[in-house]
Amino acid sequence: MTFRPPLSREQSRAVDQLAADKYHIPGVILMENAGRGCAELLIAQAPKQVLIACGPGNNGGDGYVIARHLDLAGIAVKIALFCPRERIKGDALINFRIVEAAGIEILDCSDEPLSADFAAALSEADWVVDALLGTGVTSAPREPIASAIGAINASSSGVLAIDIPSGLDCDTGQPHDPTIEAHLTATFVTPKPGYEQETAKPFVGEVHVLDIGTPRKLLAEVLGERG
């Protein structure tokens, strides 16, 4: 991939907005591309059983796409849902309904404390996908997600963070308490400014930048480039 300068939180939002408003790319297409790219990265790690921890936003939506592609590849997968179902909206809801219809197991983890089902699924998984919180987060994770992060960090599973380890500030690289300690981070379009900070390195692990189908012209526009 050609080198691309990092995109801040606001620039990343601008990419999504321009993609929809000016370049006529529905968000559900970008979500599909993001999730499929993450699934391919995870499949390359040869997982046997995967647990995908999903929050309420588009990060969770990416997780549902990943679940579908892992299931298609014959990999055992479960989803741990850390929000009430009625909070899932938009493109994420489209993909949630797909995994429901596909019969992929969904554990309701929206209540405190963490359920025994989540603890059991975590103990069985050799990889966990962190699809809890995205780049928009600027404060410490709240319950029950905070407890989930602690449990994932304490497990022996490999951890793939989607776009950003939950709890990390993408602009400053400062971790909140708690923050996911990922082995791999799959981030989209470009790196994020905070990932190069020393404070972030114990949390992001090995960073992979994935394309999701945004036009080169769009990216140049957000970066303020000519030509």
Rank of each mutant, 00 (worst) to 15 (best):
L114F: 01
A102V: 11
E124R: 15
S123A: 15
N153P: 02
A120I: 06
I98M: 13
S115W: 12
F118N: 06
A151V: 13
P144L: 08
G134W: 00
V99T: 12
S157M: 11
E112F: 09
N95K: 09
S147A: 13
A154G: 07
S110H: 08
A148S: 07
I152W: 04
P113W: 03
D111S: 15
G134F: 07
D130H: 08
V159P: 09
G103P: 01
A131L: 13
D126T: 07
V99H: 01
D111V: 08
L133S: 04
E100K: 11
P144S: 04
A119Q: 15
A140T: 12
S147W: 06
S123W: 11
A101C: 10
V128W: 03
D130I: 14
L107W: 09
I106S: 04
A151T: 06
A140P: 03
P141L: 01
S115E: 08
D108N: 08
D130S: 08
V137I: 07
S157G: 11
A131E: 03
I106A: 03
D111N: 14
R97A: 13
I106E: 05
A161V: 10
D130G: 11
A119G: 10
A121L: 03
L160W: 05
D126A: 10
T138N: 10
S156F: 15
I104C: 00
D108E: 00
A101F: 12
F96E: 07
D108P: 00
L107I: 13
E100D: 14
V99R: 01
D126M: 08
F96M: 07
A154Q: 09
V128S: 01
L107A: 09
V159G: 13
G134I: 03
D111F: 14
D117I: 06
G134H: 14
V99G: 01
S139D: 11
V137R: 13
G150D: 11
I145H: 01
F118T: 00
L132K: 02
I149H: 03
T135E: 03
S147E: 14
A101E: 09
I162G: 08
T135N: 05
S147N: 10
L132Q: 01
R142H: 10
S139L: 07
I162S: 15
A116N: 10
D130P: 05
I104W: 02
A154D: 15
A120Y: 09
T138F: 11
A148I: 03
V99P: 00
A148L: 14
L107Q: 06
I106C: 06
I104R: 03
N153C: 09
V137Q: 09
E112N: 12
E143K: 02
E100V: 10
I149A: 05
L114R: 01
W127G: 09
I104S: 04
S123N: 15
T138E: 12
A161Y: 05
A102H: 11
A119H: 09
A131C: 10
I106G: 04
N153R: 05
G158S: 11
F96T: 03
W127A: 10
L132Y: 04
I106N: 02
